[in-house]
Design a binder for these strands. Structure first.
Length: 957
RNA sequence: GGGCGCGUAGCUCAGCGGGAGAGCACCUCGUUGACAUCGAGGGGGUCACAGGUUCGAUCCCUGUCGCGCCCACCA
């Protein structure tokens, strides 16, 4: 029994439980052991995450594909899991500690802190998973993984060690993007360039050997900078070798103001005569470009900041080296000063001594940490890097060759652009939460990388024994006792970038490197579904790692979907307060409505501007479906087990079978091509505008009538088409369809596991017959293929389409004219078919009940000519007349006819213009020309009928 | 500075070489036996602008204007 009203919240919980209980989404089910696998790995959401609109879209699309392929009999593995999200998670837990006024991370110590994070994960890490379940995601939840699982951690270590051995991971001291708030290095991708209104300070650097005079430009050189505080670390001034203003100064020295250090004026192409003063200060330790210049000229790197971005001058050997007497005072005054305060202070001092020439307003891009939001400091440290340039080569080639392709294709350009200009990937992070780098150091800083501590320590001790740093006996003791080697062999404290483990996701989740069984069966995956915002972060890196370790692309297709924005097109963000919470939408309208909305809007573009009203509209669609099923139930529509829709005899039934097959094909082809919006649109139109608006209405008179073979057949067909609809909609609206599936008939299994409409699989008649025959003799395949008897005949029926088309046209035209003429619904108007063909007359008789009901007609009769004073309609070339003498306003009808006539004449004129154009006739394809000729004939006929109608109307006056 | 994309009905968006579509909103009518979360009918668009290609352009090409996004170390 179907409930009277559709209440999503009620059924969603029940259906989710039913799927869970049946193990419906488990990969490798016994009944599919011989089936072809279909694999998708979920883009793992952060454990700290909660479902936002992007997740909702992303997972809806994946779920549509998975449910679709599952119904087509594939062994679907949708691999779920979450990402440990290093920085984000650590921040969450640290915030929690602060809120609870507990000791901070550093006070607590690494081990304790990590315990706390795991504890937090156990308590709160499951939130997003449950939210995905609410959305209806048909993942194999029994296989849920986490990037810091034991198995995945082993994969990380193995990959690190192997890449290190191959020289593709190395340690290097160079400038990194340093986050002075989070106190860690971050990768280029985690840096956001933000436009900032700042200043350009022009500073005077006195030339050595001249007496500095602010009013005498020959005594100094002007450099322009946006970061005056870094001048403390300057080690040169660069000018362009071709810049004639400065050529005479090349090789001379300047005295660094305030500091007193002598630094050279060098010639370097980097200096752009157009920019600033044409002379630029070089600070190799605090600027990426200057670093390069410094390397070219062998300049010292003078780092003047500490990890928190404060001036660090005292005890700073690099800074103090070569400074004149008397510089101690400055060091004392400035040491420990925060960088922006230092900027002010230094500018003030420069101004005091006349070293500041001018300040110009200057808007420029300033790097910010995407997590911390603070200004990133280029900072000189030791970090681990992946040789991304080398690893990118096979990944680029794979896309070039088409082994992997992007949908839509234009994203490949973005991919190539980035991959071909890729920089070394900084993978070490000064955090605690993450995969600790498997590297150990000896007392001289030598690195030992190995998969286990045991191995690394063994190697290290062996080495130091050999080097006679320690005795064999000492080495033996240290090998056995961690305490004894403490301080001698130490492990690298740092952890890896979160994306390092994510890059392995397509194979690490399948058991690599421990167990190859699932890797063999499910790798490579079939498609990756994701947003363009993580092409670089994730897709590119999976391609690199997949190519390197699996020697095969991780996925042949990357489907890039849009980003969800708010109604005005702004990116949703908490700070803007424009976030639409998908869970609220689910509460208000149901998960099915939300899913359908997202699928319907998933046209391949850049972004989706979501208006909540859309969701309401699709909730109404679900209600419509619900009520259509109730209607079938009320009319005792059941599907007999041996029913064959292709063998129907009633025209209306043949017609709906034909239309259903057409819709199935459309939907199937659209999903196969990742045109989710087309698939959803086709389903929507079929269910509402074909099945509900016409088929059920046309079927009503038969179903309300006496029992008859026609009634029996119609009941069966109503049920058959309904079942097909439930199948076709299931990938988009799994909950409501599963519920309706269960309550509309006794079923042997879940809709989620029911075969997709077979005719829609694009198989030939012979192939289908073969499958059906195989299924009959193969018990394993039976549950999949035999659940529904498959049709034996052909669905296509042009005659039925023509006949129902006539009915639809007639009813629509009559309704339209009735509305225009303001005829009240209670007035039943007679219908006279004038000069109707035998075929039309037969149709009119067959459909008399229906057209009377739907068009509010009285008697239906035939005549040679339309009665005088009647409204005359043209239905498929023949006249249908409504004798409304006295009822209608003749003037209005005249106007209506005149309008129709004018339209017909305009049509003729337009077509004639084409057909009389020799070039058109000569150049246009034949079928187009034929089409135009047909149009002309039709328009001429229409014109004739209109003229006649006007004559008849005159007669009435 | 490079790259990508968008400007189609009041709003949100499809379409993309042969007379423009949907949902919502709007107007009129409707308690007809699944559904008022509904039904019937209707109004509303020189498809940003200007050139070009073509027999034919909303669709292809070029340019202009407006908007958005991504990448980039430019003082």
């Amino acid at each position: 029994m179907i409930e009277k009203t559709y209440q999503p919240a009620d059924i969603e919980g029940r259906m989710a439980a039913a799927w869970e209980q049946a193990g419906a989404f488990k990969a490798g089910r016994a009944d599919r052991i011989d089936a072809e696998p279909y694999t998708i790995v979920i883009p793992p959401p952060n454990v700290t995450g909660s479902l936002h609109m992007g997740h909702a879209l992303n997972n809806t699309l994946q779920d549509v594909l998975c449910r679709f392929e599952r119904m087509r009999g594939r062994d679907v593995l949708w691999q779920p899991g979450t990402d440990h999200a290093g920085i984000a998670t650590q921040m969450v837990v640290e915030r929690q500690l602060t809120e609870r006024q507990e000791p901070g991370r550093r006070d607590m110590g690494r081990e304790k802190f990590l315990e706390r994070v795991w504890q937090w994960k156990a308590e709160s890490g499951g939130v997003i998973v449950n939210q995905l379940k609410r959305l209806g995601a048909s993942c194999d939840w029994s296989r849920e993984r986490f990037t810091m699982d034991e198995g995945l951690s082993r994969a990380v270590v193995k990959v690190f060690v192997q890449l290190h051995r191959e020289g593709l991971i190395y340690k290097d001291k160079r400038l990194v993007n340093w986050d002075p708030k989070l106190l860690t290095a971050i990768s280029d991708l985690e840096v956001q360039q933000i436009e900032v209104k700042g200043s350009l300070w022009h500073l005077r650097y006195p030339l050595q050997g001249k007496t500095f005079d602010p009013d005498d430009a020959s005594t100094f050189i002007v450099v322009a900078t946006t970061r005056p505080e870094t001048m403390l670390g300057d080690s040169a001034v660069a000018v362009n070798p071709d810049d004639e203003r400065y050529t005479h100064l090349i090789g001379k020295q300047v005295i660094l103001p305030l500091v007193g250090r002598l630094i050279p004026i060098i010639a370097d192409e980097y200096s752009d005569p157009e920019k600033g003063s044409g002379a630029v200060k070089i600070t190799p330790a605090h600027d990426f470009n200057d670093f390069e210049v410094g390397n070219r000229h062998g300049l010292p790197r003078i780092s003047i900041l500490d990890i928190e971005g404060r001036l660090a001058l005292e005890d700073n050997e690099d800074y103090l080296r070569g400074l004149p007497e008397g510089s101690a005072q400055l060091v004392e005054e400035l040491d420990g000063m925060e960088r922006f305060a230092a900027r002010k202070s230094i500018v003030a001092r420069l101004e005091d001594f006349g070293f500041l020439e001018k300040i110009e307003p200057n808007t420029h891009m300033v790097p910010h940490g995407d997590r911390s939001g603070v200004v990133i400091e280029p900072y000189l440290t030791d970090q681990w890097y992946v040789d991304a340039k080398t690893m990118a080569q096979p990944a680029i080639a794979a896309v070039r060759s088409g082994a992997t392709s992007f949908v839509p294709k234009n994203w490949e350009k973005t991919y190539f652009e980035w991959m071909e200009n890729i920089q070394p990937w900084c993978i070490s992070r000064q955090l605690w939460w993450g995969h600790q780098i498997p590297a150990w150091y000896g007392p001289d800083g030598k690195v030992f990388v190995a998969e286990t501590e045991e191995e690394a320590v063994g190697n290290a001790l062996g080495y130091y024994v050999e080097q006679e740093v320690i005795t064999e006996e000492q080495g033996h003791d240290m090998a056995l006792d961690p305490e004894k080697r403490a301080g001698f062999i130490t492990r690298d404290e740092d952890v890896l970038d979160t994306w390092f483990s994510s890059a392995l996701w397509p194979f690490s989740t399948l058991g690599w490197p421990d167990d190859a069984t699932d890797v063999e069966r499910y790798y490579p995956t079939n498609v990756l579904v994701t947003g363009f915002d993580i092409i670089f972060f994730w897709v590119a890196r999976m391609m690199m790692m997949g190519m390197h370790f699996m020697k095969e692309v991780p996925f042949p297709t990357v489907y890039i979907h849009a980003l969800v924005r708010d109604e005005k097109g702004a990116k949703m963000s908490k700070s803007k307060g424009n976030v639409i919470d998908p869970l609220h939408l689910i509460d208000d309208y149901g998960a099915d409505a939300l899913r359908f909305t997202l699928a319907a809007m998933a046209a391949q573009g850049r972004d989706i501007k979501l208006a909540p009203q859309r969701v309401e509209g699709y909730r109404n669609f679900a209600t419509k479906l619900w009520n259509a099923c109730r209607f079938a139930e009320m009319n005792e529509c059941f599907l007999p087990p041996d029913f064959d829709p292709t063998q129907a005899t009633e025209v209306v039934n043949r017609w709906i079978a034909h239309e259903t097959a057409r819709a199935s094909r459309e939907i199937t082809e659209a999903i196969e091509a990742y045109r989710f919006n087309d698939a959803a649109g086709a389903a929507y139109r079929f269910v509402w505008n074909v099945y509900c608006d016409w088929y059920l209405e046309l079927a009503k008179p038969v179903m309300m009538g006496e029992d008859s073979p026609a009634k029996t057949e119609t009941r069966a067909m109503v049920a058959w088409a309904r079942d097909e609809i439930l199948k076709l909609l299931h990938p988009f609206m799994p909950f409501i369809t599963e519920e309706l599936w269960a309550v509309t008939a006794p079923r042997s299994g879940l809709l989620a596991l029911t075969p997709w409409p077979l005719k829609a699989r694009g198989l030939s008649r012979e192939q289908e017959a073969l499958i059906i025959a195989t299924a009959a003799s193969d018990p394993l395949a039976a549950p999949i293929l035999m659940a529904t008897p498959e049709p034996t005949g052909d669905f296509r029926d042009d005659a039925a389409e023509a006949e129902i088309g006539w009915v639809v046209d007639l009813v629509t035209a009559v309704r339209s004219v009735r509305a225009e003429m303001n005829i009240t619904p209670s007035t039943l108007t007679p219908l006279v078919l004038a000069g109707a063909s035998a075929e039309t007359q037969a149709r009119a008789v067959r459909w008399s009940d229906v057209i009377k009901r739907l068009a509010r007609l009285g008697e239906v009769s035939f005549a040679d000519r339309a009665p005088e004073g009647s409204v005359q309609l043209l239905i498929r070339g023949e006249v249908a007349a409504l004798p409304l003498k006295g009822v209608i306003d003749v003037g209005a009808e005249q106007a209506r006819l005149a309008k129709e006539l004018a339209k017909a004449e305009a049509d003729i004129k337009r077509v004639d213009a084409k057909l009389s154009n020799e070039k058109f006739v000569a150049n246009a394809p034949e079928e187009i020309v034929e089409e135009e000729k047909e149009k002309r004939a039709e328009a001429v006929a229409r014109k004739t009928k209109m003229l006649e109608a006007m004559e008849r109307l005159k007669g009435a006056v």
